[in-house]
Design a protein around this nucleic acid. Structure first.
Lengths: 119, 119
DNA sequence: AATAACCGTTTCGGTTCCGGATCATATCCG
DNA sequence: CGGATATGATCCGGAACCGAAACGGTTATT
Protein backbone atom coordinates (compact mmCIF):
# COMPACT_ATOMS: atom_id res chain seq x y z
CA UNK A 1 0.00 0.00 0.00
CA UNK A 2 1.57 3.23 -1.13
CA UNK A 3 1.19 6.60 0.49
CA UNK A 4 -0.98 7.80 -2.40
CA UNK A 5 -4.67 8.20 -1.85
CA UNK A 6 -7.26 7.49 -4.48
CA UNK A 7 -9.39 10.33 -5.79
CA UNK A 8 -12.41 9.32 -3.76
CA UNK A 9 -10.31 9.07 -0.62
CA UNK A 10 -8.80 12.48 -1.19
CA UNK A 11 -12.23 14.02 -1.47
CA UNK A 12 -13.48 12.16 1.56
CA UNK A 13 -10.51 13.41 3.53
CA UNK A 14 -11.11 16.98 2.48
CA UNK A 15 -14.76 16.64 3.36
CA UNK A 16 -14.04 15.16 6.76
CA UNK A 17 -11.46 17.80 7.53
CA UNK A 18 -13.72 20.65 6.42
CA UNK A 19 -16.59 19.33 8.46
CA UNK A 20 -14.44 18.46 11.44
CA UNK A 21 -12.77 21.82 11.37
CA UNK A 22 -16.08 23.66 11.47
CA UNK A 23 -17.43 21.43 14.22
CA UNK A 24 -14.44 20.74 16.43
CA UNK A 25 -11.81 23.40 15.91
CA UNK A 26 -13.47 26.55 17.17
CA UNK A 27 -10.75 28.30 19.09
CA UNK A 28 -11.89 30.01 22.27
CA UNK A 29 -15.38 30.84 21.23
CA UNK A 30 -13.97 32.55 18.18
CA UNK A 31 -16.48 33.02 15.42
CA UNK A 32 -16.26 31.08 12.21
CA UNK A 33 -13.02 30.96 10.41
CA UNK A 34 -12.90 32.06 6.84
CA UNK A 35 -11.04 29.86 4.42
CA UNK A 36 -8.85 32.90 3.86
CA UNK A 37 -8.11 33.32 7.54
CA UNK A 38 -7.18 29.67 7.79
CA UNK A 39 -4.87 30.02 4.81
CA UNK A 40 -3.21 33.06 6.34
CA UNK A 41 -2.72 31.24 9.61
CA UNK A 42 -1.21 28.16 7.99
CA UNK A 43 1.01 30.24 5.75
CA UNK A 44 2.43 32.12 8.72
CA UNK A 45 3.14 28.90 10.60
CA UNK A 46 4.34 26.72 7.75
CA UNK A 47 6.30 28.94 5.45
CA UNK A 48 9.65 30.38 6.45
CA UNK A 49 9.57 33.84 8.02
CA UNK A 50 9.56 36.74 7.84
CA UNK A 51 5.97 37.39 6.81
CA UNK A 52 4.79 40.82 5.83
CA UNK A 53 1.36 42.10 4.94
CA UNK A 54 2.45 42.77 1.41
CA UNK A 55 4.00 39.35 1.00
CA UNK A 56 0.95 37.56 2.32
CA UNK A 57 -1.32 39.62 0.09
CA UNK A 58 0.73 38.70 -2.95
CA UNK A 59 0.89 35.04 -2.03
CA UNK A 60 -2.85 34.77 -1.51
CA UNK A 61 -3.63 37.06 -4.43
CA UNK A 62 -5.78 39.45 -2.43
CA UNK A 63 -5.51 43.11 -1.52
CA UNK A 64 -3.66 44.34 1.51
CA UNK A 65 -6.69 45.31 3.59
CA UNK A 66 -7.79 41.68 3.45
CA UNK A 67 -4.59 40.66 5.16
CA UNK A 68 -4.76 43.48 7.67
CA UNK A 69 -8.25 42.41 8.64
CA UNK A 70 -7.33 38.74 8.81
CA UNK A 71 -4.42 39.58 11.09
CA UNK A 72 -6.75 41.69 13.21
CA UNK A 73 -9.04 38.71 13.66
CA UNK A 74 -6.26 36.24 14.30
CA UNK A 75 -4.47 38.66 16.60
CA UNK A 76 -7.57 39.34 18.64
CA UNK A 77 -7.65 35.75 19.78
CA UNK A 78 -3.91 35.54 20.22
CA UNK A 79 -3.12 33.23 17.32
CA UNK A 80 -0.70 35.72 15.79
CA UNK A 81 1.04 38.94 16.72
CA UNK A 82 2.53 41.86 14.88
CA UNK A 83 5.58 44.04 15.40
CA UNK A 84 7.30 46.65 13.33
CA UNK A 85 10.41 45.69 11.50
CA UNK A 86 13.28 47.39 13.35
CA UNK A 87 15.37 47.37 10.20
CA UNK A 88 12.73 49.01 8.01
CA UNK A 89 10.06 50.87 9.91
CA UNK A 90 7.59 50.55 7.07
CA UNK A 91 7.28 46.82 7.34
CA UNK A 92 5.17 44.92 9.79
CA UNK A 93 6.39 41.47 10.66
CA UNK A 94 3.85 38.82 11.52
CA UNK A 95 4.97 36.69 14.42
CA UNK A 96 3.91 33.31 15.64
CA UNK A 97 2.62 32.82 19.17
CA UNK A 98 2.64 29.86 21.51
CA UNK A 99 -1.12 29.75 21.46
CA UNK A 100 -1.15 29.85 17.67
CA UNK A 101 1.44 27.09 17.43
CA UNK A 102 -0.65 24.86 19.70
CA UNK A 103 -3.75 25.62 17.71
CA UNK A 104 -2.12 24.87 14.38
CA UNK A 105 -0.81 21.68 15.87
CA UNK A 106 -4.33 20.70 16.85
CA UNK A 107 -5.42 21.21 13.27
CA UNK A 108 -2.70 18.85 12.17
CA UNK A 109 -3.97 16.31 14.64
CA UNK A 110 -7.42 16.68 13.13
CA UNK A 111 -6.10 15.97 9.65
CA UNK A 112 -4.21 12.93 10.85
CA UNK A 113 -7.18 11.65 12.78
CA UNK A 114 -9.46 12.01 9.76
CA UNK A 115 -6.89 10.37 7.55
CA UNK A 116 -6.59 7.37 9.84
CA UNK A 117 -10.36 7.05 9.90
CA UNK A 118 -10.33 6.75 6.12
CA UNK A 119 -11.21 3.40 4.71
CA UNK B 1 6.63 3.76 4.16
CA UNK B 2 3.10 3.63 5.40
CA UNK B 3 0.20 5.68 4.14
CA UNK B 4 0.26 7.79 7.28
CA UNK B 5 1.50 11.32 7.01
CA UNK B 6 3.45 13.03 9.72
CA UNK B 7 1.92 16.00 11.49
CA UNK B 8 3.99 18.51 9.58
CA UNK B 9 3.07 16.89 6.29
CA UNK B 10 -0.61 16.92 7.14
CA UNK B 11 -0.49 20.59 7.86
CA UNK B 12 1.51 21.29 4.75
CA UNK B 13 -1.06 19.40 2.73
CA UNK B 14 -3.94 21.34 4.23
CA UNK B 15 -2.11 24.57 3.60
CA UNK B 16 -1.34 23.71 -0.01
CA UNK B 17 -4.90 22.61 -0.65
CA UNK B 18 -6.38 25.72 0.95
CA UNK B 19 -4.10 27.96 -0.99
CA UNK B 20 -4.49 26.04 -4.21
CA UNK B 21 -8.21 25.97 -3.87
CA UNK B 22 -8.41 29.73 -3.51
CA UNK B 23 -6.04 30.30 -6.39
CA UNK B 24 -6.92 27.60 -8.90
CA UNK B 25 -10.40 26.32 -8.25
CA UNK B 26 -12.59 29.30 -9.03
CA UNK B 27 -15.49 27.82 -10.93
CA UNK B 28 -16.78 29.96 -13.78
CA UNK B 29 -15.91 33.30 -12.36
CA UNK B 30 -17.80 32.36 -9.25
CA UNK B 31 -16.98 34.51 -6.28
CA UNK B 32 -15.12 33.16 -3.33
CA UNK B 33 -16.26 29.98 -1.78
CA UNK B 34 -17.04 29.93 1.86
CA UNK B 35 -15.69 27.05 3.87
CA UNK B 36 -19.32 26.29 4.61
CA UNK B 37 -20.30 26.25 0.96
CA UNK B 38 -17.45 23.91 0.21
CA UNK B 39 -18.53 21.64 3.02
CA UNK B 40 -22.10 21.60 1.75
CA UNK B 41 -20.93 20.78 -1.75
CA UNK B 42 -18.70 17.94 -0.61
CA UNK B 43 -21.36 16.55 1.67
CA UNK B 44 -23.88 16.42 -1.15
CA UNK B 45 -21.46 14.66 -3.43
CA UNK B 46 -19.81 12.32 -0.98
CA UNK B 47 -22.49 11.23 1.42
CA UNK B 48 -25.31 8.96 0.35
CA UNK B 49 -28.48 10.69 -0.79
CA UNK B 50 -31.07 11.92 -0.27
CA UNK B 51 -30.01 15.29 1.09
CA UNK B 52 -32.51 17.73 2.53
CA UNK B 53 -32.10 21.25 3.82
CA UNK B 54 -32.90 20.17 7.32
CA UNK B 55 -30.51 17.23 7.20
CA UNK B 56 -27.67 19.35 5.93
CA UNK B 57 -28.36 21.99 8.55
CA UNK B 58 -28.22 19.38 11.29
CA UNK B 59 -25.06 17.79 9.94
CA UNK B 60 -23.21 21.08 9.67
CA UNK B 61 -24.71 22.40 12.90
CA UNK B 62 -26.05 25.60 11.36
CA UNK B 63 -29.53 27.04 10.89
CA UNK B 64 -31.67 26.28 7.88
CA UNK B 65 -31.34 29.68 6.20
CA UNK B 66 -27.61 29.07 5.98
CA UNK B 67 -28.24 25.96 3.92
CA UNK B 68 -30.87 27.62 1.78
CA UNK B 69 -28.45 30.39 0.94
CA UNK B 70 -25.58 28.02 0.28
CA UNK B 71 -27.78 26.04 -2.08
CA UNK B 72 -28.81 29.28 -3.75
CA UNK B 73 -25.18 30.14 -4.37
CA UNK B 74 -24.22 26.66 -5.52
CA UNK B 75 -27.33 26.36 -7.65
CA UNK B 76 -26.76 29.68 -9.36
CA UNK B 77 -23.59 28.36 -10.91
CA UNK B 78 -25.05 24.95 -11.66
CA UNK B 79 -23.11 22.94 -9.12
CA UNK B 80 -26.26 21.62 -7.48
CA UNK B 81 -29.99 21.53 -8.16
CA UNK B 82 -33.13 21.23 -6.08
CA UNK B 83 -36.41 19.47 -6.60
CA UNK B 84 -39.42 18.81 -4.45
CA UNK B 85 -39.72 15.40 -2.91
CA UNK B 86 -42.64 13.73 -4.74
CA UNK B 87 -43.27 11.51 -1.75
CA UNK B 88 -43.40 14.32 0.80
CA UNK B 89 -44.03 17.74 -0.68
CA UNK B 90 -42.48 19.48 2.26
CA UNK B 91 -39.03 18.21 1.57
CA UNK B 92 -36.59 19.59 -0.94
CA UNK B 93 -34.12 17.10 -2.28
CA UNK B 94 -30.70 18.35 -3.25
CA UNK B 95 -29.52 16.77 -6.46
CA UNK B 96 -26.12 16.42 -7.99
CA UNK B 97 -25.38 17.80 -11.42
CA UNK B 98 -22.90 16.80 -14.10
CA UNK B 99 -21.16 20.12 -13.77
CA UNK B 100 -20.98 19.72 -10.02
CA UNK B 101 -19.59 16.22 -10.30
CA UNK B 102 -16.87 17.40 -12.64
CA UNK B 103 -16.04 20.28 -10.36
CA UNK B 104 -15.84 18.09 -7.27
CA UNK B 105 -13.65 15.72 -9.22
CA UNK B 106 -11.32 18.59 -10.06
CA UNK B 107 -11.04 19.36 -6.37
CA UNK B 108 -10.04 15.75 -5.78
CA UNK B 109 -7.38 16.12 -8.42
CA UNK B 110 -6.09 19.18 -6.65
CA UNK B 111 -5.76 17.29 -3.37
CA UNK B 112 -3.94 14.43 -5.07
CA UNK B 113 -1.67 16.80 -6.89
CA UNK B 114 -0.74 18.61 -3.70
CA UNK B 115 -0.23 15.35 -1.90
CA UNK B 116 2.16 14.08 -4.52
CA UNK B 117 4.08 17.32 -4.32
CA UNK B 118 4.68 16.73 -0.64
CA UNK B 119 8.18 15.97 0.39
C1' DA C 1 16.13 69.55 1.99
C1' DA C 2 12.61 68.28 -1.08
C1' DT C 3 10.44 64.91 -3.63
C1' DA C 4 9.18 60.37 -4.78
C1' DA C 5 8.33 55.64 -3.62
C1' DC C 6 6.89 52.22 -0.37
C1' DC C 7 4.20 50.02 3.40
C1' DG C 8 0.44 49.10 6.42
C1' DT C 9 -3.85 50.99 8.08
C1' DT C 10 -8.17 53.23 7.75
C1' DT C 11 -12.23 54.84 5.46
C1' DC C 12 -15.91 54.29 2.22
C1' DG C 13 -19.73 52.15 -0.31
C1' DG C 14 -21.46 47.87 -1.53
C1' DT C 15 -22.08 42.94 -0.99
C1' DT C 16 -22.58 38.78 1.58
C1' DC C 17 -23.38 36.19 5.62
C1' DC C 18 -25.40 35.04 10.05
C1' DG C 19 -29.26 33.64 13.40
C1' DG C 20 -33.98 34.42 14.91
C1' DA C 21 -38.46 35.10 13.63
C1' DT C 22 -42.00 34.75 10.39
C1' DC C 23 -44.47 32.93 6.36
C1' DA C 24 -46.50 29.72 2.95
C1' DT C 25 -47.14 25.22 2.01
C1' DA C 26 -47.68 20.29 2.98
C1' DT C 27 -48.59 16.49 6.03
C1' DC C 28 -50.29 14.27 10.04
C1' DC C 29 -53.67 13.24 13.49
C1' DG C 30 -57.61 13.67 16.35
C1' DC D 1 -62.85 18.60 8.41
C1' DG D 2 -59.72 21.33 11.41
C1' DG D 3 -55.90 22.17 14.27
C1' DA D 4 -51.18 20.87 15.30
C1' DT D 5 -46.80 19.83 13.30
C1' DA D 6 -43.02 19.86 9.93
C1' DT D 7 -40.31 21.82 6.11
C1' DG D 8 -38.09 25.18 3.36
C1' DA D 9 -37.99 30.02 1.94
C1' DT D 10 -38.06 34.84 3.12
C1' DC D 11 -37.53 38.97 5.90
C1' DC D 12 -35.00 41.55 9.30
C1' DG D 13 -31.21 43.85 11.94
C1' DG D 14 -26.53 43.31 12.80
C1' DA D 15 -21.94 41.86 11.72
C1' DA D 16 -18.12 40.67 8.63
C1' DC D 17 -16.01 40.88 4.32
C1' DC D 18 -14.41 42.82 -0.07
C1' DG D 19 -11.71 46.22 -3.28
C1' DA D 20 -10.61 50.95 -4.32
C1' DA D 21 -9.00 54.97 -2.63
C1' DA D 22 -7.12 58.04 0.68
C1' DC D 23 -3.97 58.69 4.70
C1' DG D 24 0.13 58.86 7.91
C1' DG D 25 4.59 57.38 8.61
C1' DT D 26 9.15 55.57 6.82
C1' DT D 27 12.73 55.09 3.57
C1' DA D 28 14.99 56.08 -0.81
C1' DT D 29 16.30 59.29 -4.38
C1' DT D 30 17.75 63.52 -6.28
Amino acid sequence: MSSALKASQSLQLLHDVSLGFALECRPDGAPDFTLRQLTVLLTVYLEPPPHTVRGLAAKLDVTKPVITRALDSLGKIGLVSRRRDPADGRNVIVQRTVKGALYVESIGDLVIRKMQALR
